[in-house]
Nucleic acid binder design. Structure first.
Length: 167
DNA sequence: TTCGTGATACCC
DNA sequence: GGTATCACGAAC
C-alpha cells in the first residue's frame, strides 16, 4: 500500500498549485470525493479529495495489495502476477476499472468506498514523491515498510515515519 | 533508457 | 492558434 499527499496552492507539485481549472476542479470541492485525472495520453490515476471548505488537497493512491477480485483485475490488466496488478497509480486504476467517468464520485456512496479491514502495518516509511519535477523536497510519499505491493519507483531518502511507527 | 500517446494549460 | 509539459508504464 502506498499513497502520496498533495496540498493546494502552496504545494508546487500539486495539480492545484495554480488554482482551479477544468481538470482539477474536484480537488477544490468537498472532501471524500474521487479525483481522477488522465495523463501521458493513456493513463488514469485516482486521488481522494481531503480538504473542502474552499481549500484544495488530495491523496494519490499509488499502490494497493490485492485481497479479492483477482480474476477481474487479471482480466482488466491482461493476466499478470498478483504483485503486478496494483503496484502503480495507473496500474491500479486499470485493475479496478477506474476511468474519467468516475471523476467526482462520492466515496461515501455504495459504488466505491474506503474501509478499515483491520490490517495494521508494522511500520510506515516515507520518501519524496515520485515523478514530479517541483516539490521534490517534501517527504509526502507513504508506504508500508517491506511490502512487495508498493510501486517499483525508487525515491530517496526513505525514512521511517516518526509517529506511525509501531511496537 | 526510450518512447508511446493525447489532454491540458498557458502563451500568444 | 502553437507547444511544452505531464503525480506513467512497458519494452528495450
Amino acid at each position: 500500500m502506498e499513497t502520496e499527499a498533495y496540498r493546494g496552492e502552496d504545494d508546487p507539485g500539486s495539480h492545484a498549485s495554480r488554482g482551479p481549472t477544468q481538470r482539477n476542479r474536484v480537488m477544490f470541492g468537498p472532501g471524500g470525493f474521487l479525483y481522477v485525472y488522465f495523463t501521458y495520453g493513456m493513463h488514469f490515476c485516482m486521488n481522494v479529495v481531503t480538504e473542502g471548505g474552499g481549500a484544495s488537497g488530495a491523496v494519490l493512491i499509488r499502490a494497493l495489495e490485492p485481497i479479492g477480485g483477482i480474476e477481474t483485475m487479471n482480466r482488466l490488466r491482461g493476466g499478470r502476477e498478483i504483485r503486478e496488478l496494483c503496484n502503480g497509480p495507473a496500474k491500479l486504476c486499470q485493475a479496478l476499472g477506474v476511468t474519467r467517468e468516475l471523476n467526482g464520485l462520492d466515496l461515501t456512496g455504495d459504488m466505491m468506498w474506503i474501509s478499515d479491514d483491520g490490517f495494521r502495518p508494522g511500520a510506515i516509511e516515507l520518501s519524496s514523491r515520485i515523478g514530479i519535477s517541483a516539490g521534490r523536497d517534501k517527504p509526502w510519499r507513504f508506504f508500508v515498510a517491506g511490502s512487495p505491493f508498493v510501486s517499483p519507483g525508487k525515491a530517496s531518502p526513505v525514512r521511517t515515519h516518526p509517529i506511525l511507527r509501531r511496537r
